[in-house]
Amino acid sequence: MDPFVVLVLCLSCLLLLSIWRQSSGRGKLPPGPTPLPVIGNILQIDIKDVSKSLTNLSKIYGPVFTLYFGLERMVVLHGYEVVKEALIDLGEEFSGRGHFPLAERANRGFGIVFSNGKRWKEIRRFSLMTLRNFGMGKRSIEDRVQEEARCLVEELRKTKASPCDPTFILGCAPCNVICSIIFQKRFDYKDQQFLNLMEKLNENIRIVSTPWIQICNNFPTIIDYFPGTHNKLLKNLAFMESDILEKVKEHQESMDINNPRDFIDCFLIKMEKEKQNQQSEFTIENLVITAADLLGAGTETTSTTLRYALLLLLKHPEVTAKVQEEIERVIGRNRSPCMQDRGHMPYTDAVVHEVQRYIDLIPTSLPHAVTCDVKFRNYLIPKGTTILTSLTSVLHDNKEFPNPEMFDPRHFLDEGGNFKKSNYFMPFSAGKRICVGEGLARMELFLFLTFILQNFNLKSLIDPKDLDTTPVVNGFASVPPFYQLCFIPV
Rank of each mutant, 00 (worst) to 15 (best):
D414V: 06
M198V: 13
S162Y: 11
C179N: 15
V479A: 15
K432H: 14
T385L: 02
G416Q: 13
K247C: 11
D2V: 13
M271H: 08
R357N: 01
G32S: 02
T386Y: 06
L131W: 02
K59G: 10
L445P: 03
A477G: 12
C372E: 11
K59T: 10
R357M: 00
R26G: 13
S23M: 11
M198T: 08
R97F: 03
K270S: 07
D262W: 01
V6C: 14
G228Y: 08
K249S: 06
M136H: 15
R124D: 03
D349H: 09
S422V: 03
E122P: 04
M406D: 14
G62I: 00
F65R: 01
K399E: 15
L87Y: 05
L294Y: 05
N277K: 12
E438K: 09
E142G: 07
Q279M: 06
P163T: 10
Q276L: 11
P227L: 08
A149N: 01
N259C: 09
T320W: 06
Q22R: 13
G296H: 14
F425A: 05
F282I: 05
K48D: 08
V76Q: 00
E253D: 15
Y225G: 06
A291I: 14
I112E: 03
H78P: 01
N457T: 14
H316D: 05
F401I: 02
V113W: 05
K399P: 02
T283Y: 03
R186A: 05
P37Q: 01
E400V: 09
D46Y: 05
E274F: 08
V64T: 04
Q278Y: 11
P402D: 12
K273N: 11
L128A: 12
C164R: 06
P35H: 06
M255H: 02
R261A: 05
L87G: 03
H251M: 01
I169W: 10
V394K: 01
T348K: 01
G117S: 07
L195P: 03
E93G: 08
V323M: 14
E154Y: 08
K121P: 03
L29V: 08
T392D: 04
N231E: 09
L440M: 10
S365I: 07
N258R: 12
K200A: 12
L440I: 14
